[in-house]
Amino acid sequence: MWDQARQALTASMNKLLSETASLLPGVVALIVALLISALIAWVLVAALRRSLAGIHFDERVNRWGFTSLSEWSPSNSPTLLVARFVFWLIIFFGFLVGIASFDATLTSQLVHSMFAYVPNVLGAVVVLLAGNVIARFLARSVLIGAVNMNLQYARLLAVGVKWLVIVLAVTMALEHLKIGGGIVNLAFGILFGGIVFALALAVGLGSKELVSRSLEREASKTSGNGVEEPFRHL
């Protein structure tokens, strides 16, 4: 009986050791793949950073209107953000190569499902970028227009419009990513409705004074009491 127990124990030990030993080349391959990808990433990122600095990428990004990209970036540098993104992307590919040395079918399934999701991610990124550009353009239009109309709450209006468009873009992006589903739609409805309601209230209450002032001006014009302004521009 003891012999049988010893044999079973030895067999299981052998099995465990052989399975562990069979994993070792994979682990080594993973480590090597990660090291090589890190080396490639480091070289590529250094070249990328140098070339982006050469074309003044940070200034250009600001000039193109993506000022928020600087705010989100490490050290307020979009160049650094792009470089780090590229670095981790290469590391990720190295990791996938390393994983393939364990089990090729697992990796292919993982890669397949990931690539199937890529169009959604790209769609979401495009929606977010477009939303950001449109939000900034509209916010700027509203801000300048409201200042030229001498509205004291010009900035509030501009910020309201900007967030309205950004919230819409984020919701559309989440919809693309299939995250949240019903909850996102419900939250968006509540948030969007809330912003519109708040803006309507703000404009409505704020424009009371504006309307009364313009009526006063009209009244003074018709009664002839108003002094004609001497300013002629063109």
Binding site: L143, I144, V147, N150
Partner: peptide
């Protein structure tokens, strides 16, 4: 001459438009 409106607009611009 009454320049109050123009001054108000300039001050509002100086407050809200520096980023532009």
């Amino acid at each position: 001459v009454d320049v109050r409106r123009m001054l108000e607009l300039f001050q509002l611009g100086a407050r809200d438009l520096p980023e532009i």
